[in-house]
Amino acid sequence: MTTTSAPPSSPPQRREPAAQKRKGRFGDRLFAGASTGSGILILLVLAGVAVFLISRSIPALTADTADLPNEEGLGAYIGPLIFGTLLAAVIALVVATPLAVGIALYITHYAPRRLAALMGYVMDLLAAIPSVVYGFWGIATLAPALVPFYGWLERNLGFIPLFSGPASVTGRTMLTVGLVLAVMILPIISAISREVFSQAPALHREAALALGATRWEMIRMSVLPYGKSGVIGGAMLGLGRALGETLAVAIVLSASGVVTFDLISSTNPSTIAANIALQFPESSGLNVNVLIASGLALFVITLAVNMLARWVVNRRADFSGAN
């Protein structure tokens, strides 16, 4: 240090480190304050939503069965909606996740660089299409196109309860909705998978290759394990979107409030979000409370799904490679 040789002549220099330290601490405090503030804000918003949903649901929860719109009780009304919501979202997830992982792997590890960039761009564009467009595509193009396929399913795989039929003649079935939702959540899942796959450390990829792994073996040994929690996170984001999707479902699905695993018939359970959107304009009084109670159910489901995802991701945190 040069300052030690001439302390009396350079008091400003001597003060500098201390001042810097204080400034650093101030910056730290500012940042800590700002991030704590945003954290609290999010919790407040969430709590506000929850309070709203609960307080407006109470009339429906405590009402007489006879006063309810269907006159059979709240459970009988919301139950099929919950069922429909979960069914549509699960179909979407089951179809979209493997596809998204495949696309992400192709883009990050197989495609020539130019093509990879182009495909990434196209996938991002898919995410930018508004859901009403997906809805119209579903009802105008996809549904009619699937009608012959549903007929074939009923004839050949009708022994499986999922395809017992009678096959819808319009194609506006649960399966169509699930497929539309799958296309909608595909970009989310594949974008996140792409991101994590491309970040798999070269160190570990080389470790696998040096052992004589083929490209696919290398992916299995180092890329997939590294990206697993990211893929699960992406799938959960996609699931969240599928659970809450309103317009596309409302447009495509021909719903009738039943509970059935038959995916290809014209009688289908509706979903919570679509049902709210369709019923809300014509509702008043207690009916509004019932709809809000169904919204509360959706809120709880989404929360539960996210917590489940977190638990899945953390279960093997030791082996995640993050340490």
Binding site: L203, H204, E206, A207, A208, L209, A210, L211, G212, A213, M221, S222, P225, Y226, K228, F319, S320, G321, N323
Partner: peptide, 17 residues
């Protein structure tokens, strides 16, 4: 590479294994 093994400058065990 199956016949010619390699140990790298930086240790690289598979973290997920």
């Amino acid at each position: 590479r199956r016949q010619i093994g390699m140990v790298f400058q930086r240790p690289n065990p598979f973290p997920t294994m």
